[in-house]
């Protein structure tokens, strides 16, 4: 089965600034793919290229085996999009906006719409100008999830939702069984929902893979109380920030190099050992930092 989304070497510049600088992205059919990166990394530009709204300067993009620019209208029948900043027509009610977007996409499932309105606790009779940011986002989410489509492009869809509604969003995504590209800043959401993630920075993908694959890229922190002197520990590859205080050592170790380090520790003799796997926050902070590019 071909990938739902694949891009190769996408380049897009606005004037002199490069929004995308050779982006590769592959989203397999059926997976929920996390799309992460700091503000201004090029996430929204990528999604707009995938929607055929923006044309890439270089590189290729395929969406559902079609060209997003020239086959836009046909592809849009098979996908739904939730923008990060949802603006609606102020004098249309939420229900009208949902039905309008759904119909223009090729039809909306009435039962599913009613169910989603109920779950997201949204009053569809209110005029859009009376909605808060979160409620406007719910309008776009209901319109997207009530449509019969194969692919969902979600650009930070939960940035205005309260924790309760975010939980509903997670359930809904988990139930869909459709391909989802989820741009997000909320790490717990990514961890809970995504099969694979791609992290981009300054218009390039810096990492791509499953979360456990990515975890290997970072360091585990270890605290140990040793029986003997810590001879040779500092010289081992992958050991960083080693500190010693009265027989207790504390250091970080590259997760790939953990085996030889543990072997050395047991040779010295261990009285107690605490090992902390890298948190997602640390992982992302490292990858988001400018000097993280390997």
């Amino acid at each position: 089965m071909p990938a739902a989304i694949s891009t190769e070497g996408l380049v897009k510049s606005f004037g002199r600034t490069f929004a995308l600088d050779g982006l590769d992205l592959t989203v397999r059919t059926g997976e929920v793919h996390g799309f992460l990166g700091p503000n201004g990394a090029g996430k929204t530009t990528t999604i707009r290229i995938l929607l055929g709204m923006t044309r890439a300067d270089e590189g290729t993009a395929r969406v559902l085996d079609g060209d997003p620019w020239s086959d836009a209208t046909d592809l849009h029948r098979r996908l739904a999009y939730v923008p990060g900043d949802v603006t609606l027509w102020p004098n249309l009610s939420g229900g009208e906006a949902i039905d309008l977007l759904g119909r223009m996409r090729g039809g909306i499932d009435k039962k599913r719409k009613a169910e989603l309105l109920e779950r997201f606790d949204l009053d569809p009779r209110k005029k859009a100008r009376a909605y808060s940011k979160g409620n406007r986002q719910k309008v776009a989410l209901v319109a997207a999830f009530a449509s019969d489509v194969e692919l969902l492009l979600l650009d930070e869809p939960t940035s205005g939702l309260d924790p309760l509604m975010e939980e509903v969003f997670r359930e809904v995504v988990q139930e869909t069984g459709r391909t989802v590209l989820l741009s997000s800043h909320i790490l717990s959401e990514v961890e809970a929902l995504c099969d694979r993630v791609t992290i981009i920075r300054a218009g390039r993908a810096v990492e791509s893979g499953t979360l456990s694959e990515l975890r290997h890229l970072t360091r585990t922190s270890i605290q140990a109380e040793l029986v003997g002197p810590m001879n040779g520990l500092a010289q081992l590859t992958g050991v960083h920030d080693l500190r010693e205080d009265d027989g207790k050592v504390q250091f970080d170790v590259d997760t790939d190099e953990i085996n030889p380090v543990l072997r050395r520790l047991t040779e010295i003799g261990v009285r107690s050992l605490v090992s902390q796997p890298p948190s997602l926050e640390e992982l992302f902070l490292r990858l988001y930092e400018p000097e993280a590019v390997k």
Partner: peptide, 8 residues
Amino acid sequence: LGPADGTL
């Protein structure tokens, strides 16, 4: 309040 369902 507006209509819950749209005709547009």
